[in-house]
Design a protein around this nucleic acid. Structure first.
Length: 445
RNA sequence: GUGGCUGUAGCUCAGUUGGUUAGAGCAUCGGAUUGUGGUUCCGAGGGUCGGGGGUUCAAAUCCCCUCAGCCACCCCA
């Protein structure tokens, strides 16, 4: 009989313990930060009616959508982001939930894209959104969540790029380019990558802009200096246009609000050239890059939208939110060497050393677990040296060694595997001394 | 979805102009050492040369297709 070749689909992958453990930690960190701002968790189905997902109807999402006919002949699709499901969810439940409604949603999404480094066909997003308010406070808070999240994960070298669609739209109105805005913005967005000349050429080619128009748009994106200096320059450029002026004012409030909340200016950069993000963004836009690995792309993006659920309800639901690309961030951290090589989730190891005493080992482990310490007992009574070798390769912090001698004396050796030191503690009156010993080793390492 | 580069053991890679039975280091497992790991020594397992087809007396090596990874485009977390 021929064997089936074990393999995974392009863009899909297995996650081994040494990657899954930091991944779970990342999820826990995101949950903690979101909750600290009052965002509540929700979940939605992975599968939706096709019409829900493709309602927006853009060619691109259509191409990337995993879709099929289910066993009941329904046309269904797998969610490709968490925002469209949120829109459906909000339209369905907002009467019960009330607004403002703040939710976070950590879940897997699927896109049939061509995979690359940090780009998968199955990946996890960690979204948080505030719907039902147009307040600038929510805009500011969104920036703060991104900032706190990045720092909680352990990053100091990151830049949150901020812009406002209204500034761009205002300028385009002024220049008479509004109806070509998508093409213009798409070209503008490539500025950092392909340079000024090519951007001008592309604007002229795809958007039908004149050289004068193209250069005027580029002028906006080329101001240098502090955030406030850039803002002042931009303000003069869009002056006279209501949309643009409102956009500048909003950006000023967002930036000063973030500073007021204690965000360091090095982490927030006004960048008038970032234009993308999904079509539904209408106000403030965020994109977050790692200073040490900018080529992997944005690891947390989001923005404000006027009417999230317009496809599903007549009730207008404005909101703002962002999405942490967990798997992309993890790929970046792996590449930057920020992933610990520990392969055990439990810090304490008990060698199964005296084969007559399995019950005692299990009892000791149970007592420690009851005190909140993770403990693994080796399953086979092999040579002690081999068991310690195993403990070492998995990254255990502590081994508790007890054999005939220790059991006779009612003691146990506490071996610090990091330092190679061993101490003997008494178990005659309980495990308090042992716990204290373990805690001191764990806090030191 | 379009174009390009790459693919030999779990990992990193050798492998001559096509020429016997495809090698090394690391990792794994066992032993030296049946009560003390990260060092050392010895040994073992592990390969459809990504897969399929073709050219040839002969293919890891040349050709075609396919799968996967990476890069660019598109788009995006």
């Amino acid at each position: 009989m021929s064997l089936i070749q074990p393999r995974t689909l392009s863009g899909f992958r297995d996650i081994l313990p040494e990657l899954m453990m930091p991944r779970e930690e990342l999820i826990a960190t995101a949950q903690r930060v979101y909750r600290s701002f009052g965002f509540a968790p929700i979940d939605t189905p992975a599968l939706e009616y096709l019409e829900i997902l493709s309602g927006k109807g853009s060619d691109e999402t259509d191409r990337q959508l995993y879709r099929f006919r289910d066993n009941g002949s329904r046309d269904v699709g797998m969610r490709f982001d968490l925002t469209v499901p949120l829109a459906r969810f909000a339209a369905q439940h907002v009467p019960k939930l009330g607004t403002p409604f703040k939710r976070y949603h950590i879940a897997t999404v699927w896109r049939g894209e061509k995979p690359q480094r940090g780009r998968y066909r199955e990946f996890m997003q960690c979204d948080f959104d505030t719907i039902g308010t147009k307040s600038v406070a929510a805009d500011i808070e969104t920036g703060l969540v991104i900032h706190d999240l990045m720092r909680a994960i352990g990053f100091e070298q990151f830049t949150i790029r901020v812009n406002n669609r209204m500034v761009l739209n205002g300028l385009l109105e002024k220049l008479g380019l509004v109806e070509k805005s998508t093409d213009v913005l798409r070209a503008l967005d490539k500025l950092a990558k392909i340079g000024r000349e090519k951007v001008v050429a592309e604007m002229m080619a795809t958007a039908g802009a004149t050289a004068v128009q193209a250069n005027a748009v580029l002028k906006l994106a080329e101001f240098a200096g502090s955030n406030n200096e850039i803002l002042d320059e931009v303000a003069t450029l869009v002056s006279g246009n209501e949309t643009g002026e409102a956009g500048v004012e909003r950006l000023r409030e967002v930036l000063s609000g973030a500073m007021a909340a204690g965000v360091n200016e090095s982490h927030v950069k006004l960048d008038v050239s970032i234009a993308r993000g999904l079509d539904y963004y209408t106000g403030v836009i965020f994109e977050t890059f790692l200073d040490d690995l900018p080529t992997i792309g944005s690891v947390c993006s989001g923005g404000r939208y006027d009417n999230l659920a317009g496809l599903f309800t007549k009730q207008e639901l404005p909101g703002i939110g962002a999405s942490l690309g967990l798997d992309r961030l993890l790929a970046a951290m792996e590449e930057l060497g920020l992933i610990d090589q520990v392969r055990t989730p439990a810090p304490v190891f008990i060698p199964f050393f005296d084969k007559e005493r399995l019950g005692d080992y299990l009892r000791l482990a149970a007592d420690l677990r009851a005190s909140g310490i993770g403990v693994e007992v080796y399953p086979d009574p092999k040579r002690l040296g081999q068991q310690l070798k195993y403990a070492d390769s998995r990254g255990f912090a502590i081994a508790l060694i007890a054999g005939y001698d220790e059991f006779e004396a009612q003691t146990c050796q506490v071996k610090n595997l990091g330092r190679g030191e061993s101490a003997e503690v008494s178990l005659a009156t309980g495990i308090d001394e042992l716990l204290a010993q373990i805690e001191s080793i764990l806090t030191a390492s």
